[in-house]
Design a protein around this nucleic acid. Structure first.
Lengths: 339, 339
DNA sequence: TTGAAAGCGGTACCAG
DNA sequence: CTGGTACCGCTTTCAA
C-alpha cells in the first residue's frame, strides 16, 4: 500500500510527474520515466482506488447485472459472465457483480453512489425492468440481449433470427422438404428474449422457402430427456428429415439418442443443426454442425461500447446484431428422399 | 448524484451533521435527523463511493476470487457465487468479481490498490496458489473450502468427512453389510479439495463399523451417464445394498436408472444417500435422502468472518467445519438380507 | 447536540 | 519536460 508520495520521493521527482509518467497522459523523459517505474515497482505501488475515483472521476469499474433466477441455465450464464469479465479486464476495468435483490435496486445504487463507470446487462427479459431504469440513470449501459422495447438503448446480440433462417436455408438447399425445430420449455419463451426470435426466424425462413416446418417445445410432464426425445420423435413421425435444435445440451443428447434408437443415421437419414448454443456441439457422440452463440463476441462488443461511451464520443444507441457464422461438423446432408 | 453539501444546505445543517446523521456514528437529535433524512431522500442522495473509500478507509466491497476453470461445475459454482453475493449485500458490502487471469493477480491488484476490504476465495484447490498469497497480503481473506495446507488461514466448509461418515453409519445402522460409494471423475480428486475428504470419511467410517466398502469413480471412456451406470452396476454386482453418491446430478439420475433397470426398488432393495450435493435431491423420480452441501451456510459464515475481521476484534484463524445435517427423503431402509 | 476544518491519496490545471 | 497546488466529496477530530 505504498503511496504516490513515496514513489515521488524515491524517484526524486514531484508527485505530479509520477502521476503523469504512470498514466502516460503527459510526455515524460525516458530517463525519469524509467526511474519512476523502477521506484513504483520496488515499492509495489498501485494508485489507491478510492483516491483515483474521487480525483479522476472515473472508477475503472463496470457493473454487471444478472438477476440469477432459479431457472437460469448456469453453464450458459457463466460463459457470459466470464466473457464479460475478460473483456472488462482487457480494457483495464474491474467487474462489480449485481445479482440478488430486485435487479434494478443494484443498478440504481451503483448509479447514485458513482461506484461504476458503466453497466452491462445480462440475461435480458423481453419486458425487462432494467430497460426503463437504464434510460433514467446517466450511466452508460449496454444490454447483452434485446428486450421488446429497445428504444434508445445500446443492445448487442447474436442475430438469432438470421441464425435460424440461415439454418433453415442450409437444410432447404440440401434438399429437405419437411423440417422441424426442437425448442426450449414454454416458459423460456416468456422469460428470455431470444427463444422467440429463433422461432420466428425459423418460421419466416421456412415459409419463404415453401417447406413444411414443424415446431415442438419441451412441453409436458417428465424430465428434459424424456421431453426432448418425445419432441424429436414427433418431428420424425411428421416426416421431418432436417431438424434444428435450439435447446440445452442435455436435450441435444436426448434428441441424438432418439434418432439413434430409431436406427437413423446422421446425416444420411436425418440432418441436424444446432442454433444458438454456447456449448461445444462437436463434442457429442455425433458431432453437430451449428450456428453457435459466442459469448465472447457479444461481451467484447458490449464492453467496447461502454468504453467508447466513456471516451467522449459516445456511440449511437441502437441494436447491434452479430452475424451468425456456420460451424460445419458434418451433420447436414441431402436426405434419401431427394437423392 | 447529489452531494452531501447539498443535503446539508437543504436541511439547514452542517455537512458533518449530515454525515453523522446518516451513518449513525454520533447521536443526532430526532428533529434534525428527520430533516436530514427527508432532504437526502428528496435529493436521492448517496455518498460518493470514491470519497467514502478515501476518507473512510473502507471500501464496502468484498472481492470474490473464482478461477473459472473449464471443468468447473457451473450450477454448483453459481450457487456459491449467489450465496456469497447475498451474504455480502446483507452486510452492506458489494462484490467485486475476480475471475480470469492468473487467479492471484487479481487478488494482488485488489490488495495493493485498496479496492476491497476483504476477499472470499471460492473453488479452493488442494494446493491452491492463493493460499500463499493470502498469507502475504494484509487483507482479511476467507476460504470457502479447505486447502491441504490451511495453516494460519480462515477456512469454512461443510464437514465432508463427517457427512460421509454419518451417511455410512446411517446405512450400517439400517443393517447394511456391504456398501458402495459412487464418486466423481478421477481428476476431481486432484483439482478440488472435497472429493478426497468424502472418500476418506467414507473409508474410515466403514472400517470403523467393520463393513465392506467399495468405491468407484467415474472412470474410463464414455459420457457421465454411462460411467455412472457402470459404477453403480459394479457396486451392485459386488453385493452392495447401500450406496452413497458423491457426484453431479446427472450421475445421480444415471445411477437411479441403472437401479431401476435392474428391477430394484429404493429403498426396499437398495438404499441410497447423496452426500455433499447442492442440488435438490428430493426432485428425482426417486427422491433421495442426503447430507447436502448448503452454500448459504458456508458463505454466510465466510462473510461474517470477514466482517468481524474488519470490526476490530479479528476472529482466530483456523478451519471452521459445518456440521452436516440429514435430509430424510425416505431412500434408506433395512435391506432384505437383514430382515 | 452541532459546526469548522484537517486530511484521505490522487488528478490535472497553471506556471515555469 | 517538470513542479506546485487546488480541488474531488466525505469522514472524523477538535472545539464550542
Amino acid at each position: 500500500m505504498a503511496k504516490i508520495h513515496e514513489v515521488a520521493q524515491a524517484a526524486g521527482v514531484s508527485i505530479s510527474t509520477v502521476s503523469y509518467a504512470l498514466s502516460g497522459k503527459r510526455p515524460v523523459s525516458a530517463a525519469t520515466r524509467a526511474r519512476i517505474e523502477a521506484a513504483a515497482q520496488a515499492l509495489d505501488y498501485a494508485p489507491n482506488a478510492g483516491a483515483r475515483m474521487l480525483a479522476g472521476r472515473r472508477t475503472h469499474i463496470l457493473a454487471l447485472t444478472e438477476p440469477l433466477r432459479p431457472d437460469t441455465h448456469a453453464p450458459t450464464h457463466m460463459a457470459f459472465v466470464l466473457a464479460s469479465s475478460i473483456a472488462a479486464r482487457r480494457n483495464d476495468y474491474d467487474v462489480l457483480l449485481l445479482t440478488d435483490e430486485q435487479a434494478s435496486a443494484g443498478m440504481r445504487r451503483v448509479a447514485t453512489s458513482g461506484l461504476a463507470d458503466g453497466i452491462i446487462v445480462l440475461d435480458v427479459a423481453p419486458d425487462d425492468e432494467r430497460v426503463e431504469l437504464a434510460r433514467r440513470i446517466d450511466l452508460p449501459t449496454a444490454f447483452v440481449g434485446v428486450p421488446d422495447d429497445s428504444e434508445g438503448l445500446m443492445c448487442v446480440d447474436l442475430d438469432f433470427e438470421r441464425a435460424a433462417g440461415d439454418a433453415v436455408d442450409k437444410l432447404v438447399t440440401a434438399g429437405h422438404q419437411v423440417i422441424g425445430l426442437v425448442g426450449h420449455a414454454p416458459s423460456a419463451y416468456q422469460l428470455s428474449n431470444f427463444p422467440p426470435r429463433v422461432r420466428d426466424g425459423y418460421s419466416a425462413a421456412a415459409q419463404a422457402a415453401g417447406v413444411r416446418a414443424e415446431f415442438r417445445m419441451l412441453e409436458g410432464e417428465g424430465d428434459v430427456q424424456t421431453l426432448a426425445r418425445r419432441a424429436a420423435g414427433e418431428l420424425l413421425d411428421a416426416g421431418a428429415t432436417g431438424i434444428l435444435l435450439h435447446c440445452h445440451d442435455t436435450a441435444h443428447a436426448a434428441v441424438l439418442s432418439e434418432v439413434h434408437d430409431r436406427g437413423l443415421e446422421v446425416p444420411q437419414d436425418v440432418s441436424i443443426i444446432s442454433v444458438g448454443s454456447t456449448f461445444d456441439t462437436g463434442a457429442f457422440a455425433t458431432p453437430l454442425s451449428a450456428y453457435p452463440l459466442v459469448p465472447k463476441l457479444s461481451c467484447d462488443l458490449a464492453v467496447e461500447l461502454l468504453v467508447q461511451s466513456l471516451s467522449g464520443e459516445p456511440p449511437e444507441p441502437g441494436v447491434r446484431l452479430i452475424a451468425p457464422t456456420y460451424l460445419d461438423n458434418g451433420s447436414v446432408a441431402t436426405p434419401r428422399a431427394a437423392r
